[in-house]
Design a binder for these strands. Structure first.
Length: 254
DNA sequence: CAATAGCCCTGGTGGC
DNA sequence: TGCCACCAGGGCTATT
C-alpha cells in the first residue's frame, strides 16, 4: 500500500524518465478507473501532450501537461505506475498504458483496481475532494509541532485514526502511522486530545523521522509496492511494529 | 463530532 | 486437489 514515501519514490523515478516526454496514445483497458472526465475527453486531454512536471501531494501523483492539465493518480491499495522500456514486458495487471514518443510506455497497473485516475485543469483540481481537503504533509513547513498540537487538542478520536485521516496530515497510512506511534512511544488507542505537550512533540518528530527514513530506504514493499521502475523498496526490513505481531495494539481496527 | 458499517475490488491464504 | 470463506485496507458515503 503506497503511502507518502512510496509515492515520493515513484515520483522521483518517473520525473527522471518522463519530463519532456510526449504522450502519443492512451490505451484504456479499464475505463472505470477514470473518475474524471469521461473516457473520450480524457484521451483528448492527454494524447499529444508533453509532460512538464511530475508532482506529488500526499498520496496523489500529478503529471503537469503542457496544456495546463493535470493527469492525477491515486494508487490506493495495489496501484503501480511504472516506466517501461520499448519492447519490455508490461505488467500483467496493466489497466492504462500511455505510449510515449520515445517508444517507451508509462504503465498504470492495478491488481485490485481500486485506484483512481483524473485529468483536470489546474483550476479544477478542487473537484478531487481528497486532494482539496489534504492536510499539511510530513517534512513540510506547514507541518509544525504547533500545528499538530492545535489540531489534536480538539479531537476526541483515537490517535491512530487521527494520523490516518488525510485531512489532518497528508500522506500517512497504516504502516507509517504505526511506526510513528511506536517511535514516539504512544499507544495507538489513546484519545488525541489527551496527548501531553511532550508527547505531541515526540509524535511530530517521529512522524517526520519515519517518513524521512522510508524515503531514504526507497519505500516499504510488502507485496505489491514497486517504484517507478518496477523495483521493490527495503524499508520493511527496518520496521519496528507494522506486520510484526498481531496484538491489539498494532492491529486494532481504527 | 465520532464511531461504525458498507462499498469498491482481486489474489493469496488457510481450513476442511 | 479443489472449493470457499476470509483478509488485505485507503478513502468515500451513509447511518447510528
Amino acid at each position: 500500500m503506497p503511502e507518502m514515501p512510496e509515492v515520493e519514490i515513484i515520483r522521483r523515478g518517473l520525473a527522471g524518465k518522463l519530463v519532456d516526454c510526449q504522450i502519443i496514445d492512451a490505451d484504456i483497458l479499464l475505463p472505470r478507473l477514470i473518475k474524471w472526465p469521461g473516457i473520450d475527453d480524457f484521451s483528448a486531454s492527454v494524447v499529444g501532450r508533453t509532460i512538464k512536471q511530475v508532482n506529488r501531494q500526499g498520496k496523489y501523483l500529478l503529471f503537469v501537461l503542457d496544456n495546463g492539465n493535470n493527469l492525477v493518480f491515486h494508487l490506493r491499495m495495489t496501484g503501480r505506475l511504472c516506466w517501461v522500456a520499448a519492447g519490455a514486458e508490461q505488467d500483467a495487471y496493466r489497466r492504462i498504458v500511455f505510449a510515449l514518443d520515445s517508444g517507451d510506455s508509462l504503465v498504470y497497473a492495478d491488481t485490485r483496481t481500486l485506484g483512481t485516475v483524473y485529468v483536470l485543469p489546474q483550476e479544477d483540481l478542487w473537484r478531487i475532494s481528497g486532494l482539496a481537503s489534504l492536510g499539511p504533509e510530513p517534512l513540510s513547513e506547514a507541518f509544525t509541532a504547533e500545528y499538530l498540537s492545535l489540531v489534536l487538542a480538539k479531537k476526541r478520536t483515537k490517535i491512530k485514526s487521527f494520523l490516518l485521516n488525510q485531512k489532518y496530515i497528508g500522506g500517512l497510512g497504516n504502516i507509517y502511522a504505526d511506526e510513528a506511534l511506536a517511535v514516539a512511544g504512544i499507544h495507538p488507542l489513546r484519545t488525541a486530545e489527551t496527548l501531553l505537550p511532550d508527547e505531541v512533540k515526540r509524535l511530530h518528530a517521529a512522524v517526520n523521522q519515519v517518513i524521512a527514513e522510508g524515503i531514504a530506504d526507497g519505500g516499504t514493499t510488502f507485496r505489491d509496492y514497486r517504484n517507478g521502475e518496477g523495483k521493490a523498496g527495503h524499508h520493511q526490513e527496518r520496521l519496528l511494529v507494522y506486520g510484526r505481531d498481531k496484538s491489539p495494539a498494532s492491529t486494532a481496527a481504527m
